[in-house]
Each structure stands twice: as C-alpha cells, then as structure tokens.
C-alpha cells in the first residue's frame, strides 16, 4: 500500500545522504563540491515541490486548514531555498568557512523542519488522505520540477 508519510520521509533521508556527500567533498576541496551542491539543491527542490504542489494543496482542501501548518512549512522552505543559494555563492567565492557556516545552519534548520513534518504533518496527511494515498504517491513520482 502506498504511504505518503513513508514516501516523503524516505525523501528526507535521501536528501540527507546527498547533503553529507556534498559536505564531504567540500571538506576536501570546495570547488569540487559544486556538482554535488547542485544535485542536493535539485533533490531538495523536487521534494519541496512534491509537498507544495501536491501534498499541501490536497491536505488543505481536505482539512480546510489554509493558513495552518502547511503555510509555516512553506515559509521554512523559503528560508532553506535562500540558504542553498548562498551555498553556491560561497563556492563561487571559494570561501570554505562561509560554506560550512551556511551548511551547518541549513542542516539544523532542515532537521528541525523534518522533525515537525515527520512527527506531525505527514502523520496527519496520511490519516486524512489515506484513501487517496496511491494517487498522491503516483503524482509525486511523476512530478516534473518547475
């Protein structure tokens, strides 16, 4: 059976792995980490869009909560998007201290965000949308990132 919570939680862990690889590469030589940083940003963007374009609207329609938790999550997404762009800037300027300062901040922001989603939002989404879970997971699978 398709499970929204499991699907998105696995997505989190996948992004964490790429993040760790990116940091590892940057630790050796910052300029070599550009490719992995772009890959990380792309993975994160795909995950954000799976939520913002598919799961959040479905959740909002079903529960009627428009300015609730999903709005808060969108705001944190925008905080993260901003930090990720700054990561690329640090690579351009070859500023390792800045890069790791940003990556650390991003990591903590990301993980406390993930905890809130996994602990609360996904569990609720799965409960409210269990009948449509199959369709929603398929939509997430075939999403084309804008």
């Amino acid at each position: 059976m398709s499970n929204i919570k499991e699907y998105l939680t696995n997505d989190h862990r996948r992004c964490d792995d790429v993040f760790a690889k990116m940091e590892d590469k940057a630790n050796n030589k910052l300029s070599d980490a550009k490719e992995l940083t772009l890959e990380f940003i792309a993975d994160m963007e795909r995950h954000f869009q799976r939520e913002e374009r598919i799961v959040f609207p479905e959740f909002e329609t079903k529960t009627g909560m428009i300015n609730g938790p999903t709005e808060m999550m969108r705001q944190e997404h925008s905080q993260m998007r901003n930090l990720m762009q700054q990561l690329l800037g640090a690579i351009e300027n070859d500023d390792k201290d800045k890069f790791f300062g940003l990556s650390e901040t991003l990591m903590i922001l990301l993980q406390q965000h993930n905890m809130k989603e996994e602990q609360m939002l996904y569990t609720m989404a799965q409960q409210h949308l269990s009948a449509e879970a199959q369709r929603i997971v398929e939509m997430m699978d075939s999403l084309v990132v804008e």
Binding site: Q75, N82, F100, G101, T105, I108, L109, Q112
Partner: peptide, 21 residues
C-alpha cells in the same frame, strides 16, 4: 546560535551571520 539565527531569519532579517560565525 540556531535559535538566534532562526528567530532573526523568520522575522525577515536576511543579512545575519551564520551559526558558525
């Protein structure tokens, strides 16, 4: 440092030091 960064950032201050700084 995270609490300081998070609260400032969420309040819209964009030009703030990172946690490590």
């Amino acid at each position: 440092p995270f609490l300081v960064w998070f609260h400032l950032n969420a309040e819209g201050y964009m030009t703030i030091p990172t946690m490590n700084e």
